[in-house]
Nucleic acid binder design. Structure first.
Lengths: 205, 205
DNA sequence: GTCTATAATCAGATAGAC
DNA sequence: GTCTATCTGATTATAGAC
């Protein structure tokens, strides 16, 4: 036996991870572009450059492909939230997280899944990584919401759960696409516009 | 020839209309329940109680079925807007229209179509009735928005088009379903809650 | 116009060789 | 694990009798 430290992950395992990352990235892009229903497994395979049968060696179903993409964005969300300045106010953190979410969507990197599809829902709920991430992010945002309501920046009259849902919904807000198609505003302007309508409302202040 | 006035529409034509109304109602319900992709033509036929081939005698494609449902809701929207009190303020009219839209969705009567589907888009755009209705409603709402910005109730800083899109987006707001699934609020409470976050914003006023 | 029966196609998933 | 080739089922759409 050599005294050189044995690598924790074998070369083979690294290759596997690289391949799977490529798959998930393609899935993520296609889900953002066309949505779950319009995305075909053939497309995914073609985009990755491997055979469809090979895809199924990595992921057992189309639903699991989508779930893997969701796990990825959830991890990105966790990382973003964790990196927020500790001294920022709760409201600023909420705004930053929402801004990040909308930026992801405008960049064509936010997967869009049909909320009604029951088998897809089941696959997501059965996915430990996804659910853990979702709960962690929800707890984090929930804490900020309560703090923001306590310090008076977010309206204390609103149920915290309604605020949370409202922020999550910015991830699939069609107003973003509409304004993008409209053409008069760039992505940053669109984000600030929707952020303003979300937090400040349509009424004059 | 009898002196009795000849009916404008024949019995046969009336039967046709009744049948087509039944079809459109079924389509509308299924589109609201499951969305365009998950709705199958077989289901529609089964719900109406006729053979699928008969369906295709009335509407040449699945896309045309969806378009017919959209024409129907657009007409309902026109009727609702036209029936609004003339002396109501522009803001009150906008709020009433938004409330109506969300009520329709919570009642399971708002068809949901994938905005990315290009052939569906093409069918909708080619549909004169739909486009005319859409333009009429948009002009009406657009006028109210400008009036509300002029009288200071809606923020004049926001582009009118962004306000219009924001109101339209309430027709497919996932927050409504989330809060409904959540179970602590009834439909009226949900509508008022989302109406409040939409017009007043999340921030404390 | 309505029906039964069927065509035509597409997409998710798998068999089996290497 | 990757490939080619194929299966299987679902779904849109139509043929043709009545």
């Amino acid at each position: 036996m050599s005294s050189i430290a044995i690598p924790r992950v074998s070369f083979k395992a690294q290759m596997l991870k690289v391949r799977e990352d490529a798959i998930i990235e393609a899935v993520n892009r296609l889900l953002a572009e066309k949505g779950f229903d319009a995305m075909t497994v053939d497309e995914v395979a073609a985009n990755v450059g491997i055979a469809k049968a090979s895809l199924y060696k990595h992921f057992p179903s189309k639903e699991h492909l989508a779930a893997a993409a969701m796990v990825r964005v959830m991890r990105q969300a966790q990382d973003f939230c964790a990196a927020l300045a500790l001294d920022a106010s709760p409201l600023e953190k909420l705004r930053a997280a929402t801004r990040w979410t909308m930026g992801l969507k405008l960049a064509g990197q936010m997967p869009s899944l049909p909320s009604q599809n029951s088998t897809l829902r089941a696959t997501l709920i059965a996915n430990r990584d996804y659910m853990d991430g979702l709960i962690e992010v929800s707890d984090l945002l929930g804490g900020w919401i309560e703090a923001a309501q306590a310090d008076g920046s977010i309206s204390p009259k609103l149920p915290a759960i309604a605020v949370l849902y409202t922020l999550y919904a910015r991830a699939c807000d069609p107003v973003l696409e509409f304004l993008m198609m409209n053409g008069q505003y760039n992505n940053d302007e669109i984000v600030e516009l929707v952020l303003s309508t979300c937090f400040d409302g349509l009424n004059t202040r």
